[in-house]
Design a protein around this nucleic acid. Structure first.
Lengths: 130, 130
DNA sequence: CCATTTGTTATATATTAAGTATAACAGATA
DNA sequence: TATCTGTTATACTTAATATATAACAAATGG
């Protein structure tokens, strides 16, 4: 799994890393039982601090995406073991409303907006984006 | 237009305020030619600093949502005068991919995901969310 | 048994973002 | 000419982000 970080991004590094790993789980490149690299080795590969990686792993654990064992490291949980909680849905709704508002202001019609969303979803599944 | 700010949010105040105003433009409660409150009066109403409001207005201006005149203040531009630039589409795509990845991990099916997106869009237009 | 690797915890520090507090300036208006 | 407007400048506090070291504890493999 190849991870690239953008130091110019407004998103913090630990957050970018979090996103990439979640994407890996979603698209199947990371699957149940896989171990993530150790915090030290991944930090070394990315040339960032071990605590930054650790913060990412702690968040992944808190959400339930991985379990952390003393020696095996961060182990990916089965896809679907994390429920769509009300908190998640609320967060999703907030973000979607902001995106939708900007899209409306920019004259994006409902169908184009929805198709962008659908294509984002399908791109994870390796399906035809159409 | 009623604006409420959440000091517990991870989003900065100027960003929350930005979102609310864009939403106002999108849903029609703010329309072409309307003047936003002066930075001082809005800051007073919200009990925040004038610079925080000013930062919001500067971003709105930069995006093209408002024009700022010396005495009239921030004047809302016609809906649709801001194009869906490639930069906007890229930002939208990034956010949607993150949302979609988390949704896939949480076993949200494509149709449910897409319907959440559609409903976020429709809620702005006062249409039936179904 | 022992060295190594693992996550974990603890400090300390530097940088930047966010928000506030004041003050002053300049253009427009009544 | 007061008074409103946005604007600019300076200073300050707080919190978030990221880094740098160091040490500890559990598990593994030789």
């Amino acid at each position: 799994m190849i991870v690239t970080l953008d130091y110019e991004s407004e998103l913090p590094l630990y957050s970018q890393l979090y996103d990439e790993i979640v994407r890996g789980i979603a698209d199947g490149s990371l699957t149940s039982g896989d171990s993530l690299p150790s915090v030290r080795s991944l930090a070394g590969d990315l040339s960032i601090n071990l605590h930054t990686v650790n913060k990412t792993y702690q968040r992944l654990k808190q959400e339930g995406y991985v379990q952390i064992h003393r020696q095996k490291g961060a182990v990916v949980q089965p896809l679907g073991s994390v429920p769509a909680t009300p908190e998640f849905r609320a967060m999703m709704s907030r973000q979607l409303r902001s995106l939708a508002a900007e899209s409306v202001c920019r004259s994006m019609e409902e169908e184009e907006f929805v198709e962008q969303c659908r294509s984002a979803y399908r791109s994870l599944k390796g399906e035809d984006p159409s």
